[in-house]
Computed example of a mutant assay.
Amino acid sequence: MRILTKFMLGLMLVLAVACSRTPTRAPSAGPGANPQLGDSRPHSWTSGSPYGQAVHGIDISRWQGNIDWNRVRGSGISFAFIKSTEGGDHVDPNFRRYWYEAAQARIPRGAYHYYYFCRSGFEQAQWFIRSVPREVGSMPPVIDLEWTNSKTCPRRPSPAEVKREASVFMDIVGRHYGQRPIIYTTVDFYRDNRLGDMRAEFWLRSVADHPRVRYPGQRWAFWQYTGTGIVPGIQGDVDLNAFAGSRSDWVRWLNTRLTR
């Protein structure tokens, strides 16, 4: 309880500061709104760049190893999506540690589930709930929908089955955490399964062009724009993401979408 109280007090301070001040300079021209962020393989954006977005974050899994979360926060990172579970029987070995450390650094964080097509949505929802704490102040859960290259699960079900089972997962998980999950997806999976008619906020992967080009007409809350980001406090490449709105929009989004 003391850890959670510290996290909530810190998050409230972050929100209060963000609401009370306006950035004094425009985002720098580079890989991210903050000049401390970088990209080991920067892309030449032609249809709209993520660098002008005001709010940036990371998504991580065990492959990021030891993380200096205070340096991450100091570099301008505003949120973290942390891999928690996969299928119906796997937990990322670093999830609990990252979950605790991000909270200690007062970085808003949420858990994401890597969905497998050889388990039902019900089974995977139950596994996620058993593995991820329901904590006040957490960001909404995420369901990661993409084609897998798993030798143990090579299935590619029909769009109708994909959306039906994903909706089961989202309904169960949404009721438990009090926030409907965000859908993370890729260009090919979105297209193959016609995901645009699903009821959810979207987190879209688009590393070669703006989401409005790769996902015509689709609104999005988060944009994963590179897998080769550079963030102080993290060794090696890391995924970087942009939030769709301004800093004020970000504060409003947090006030609406955090678990209560």
Rank of each mutant, 00 (worst) to 15 (best):
M1N: 13
M1H: 13
T5N: 13
K6H: 14
M12T: 14
V14N: 09
T24M: 13
A29W: 03
G38P: 00
D39P: 00
S44G: 12
S44K: 12
S47G: 11
D59Y: 06
S61Y: 10
R62A: 14
W63Q: 11
W63G: 00
Q64I: 03
G65F: 11
N66D: 15
R71K: 15
G74N: 14
S84Q: 05
G88P: 01
D89T: 10
N94P: 04
R97A: 13
P108H: 02
H113G: 02
Y115Q: 07
F117I: 05
Q126R: 15
V132S: 01
E135G: 04
C153S: 00
P157S: 08
P157K: 01
P159L: 07
K163T: 10
K163L: 06
R164D: 14
S167K: 07
S167H: 04
F169Q: 04
V173P: 01
Q179E: 09
T185M: 09
T185C: 12
T186N: 08
F189L: 06
L195V: 04
M198S: 09
M198T: 10
A200T: 15
A200R: 11
E201P: 02
F202H: 02
H210F: 08
I234S: 02
D237V: 06
F243A: 06
G245M: 03
L254K: 05
N255R: 15
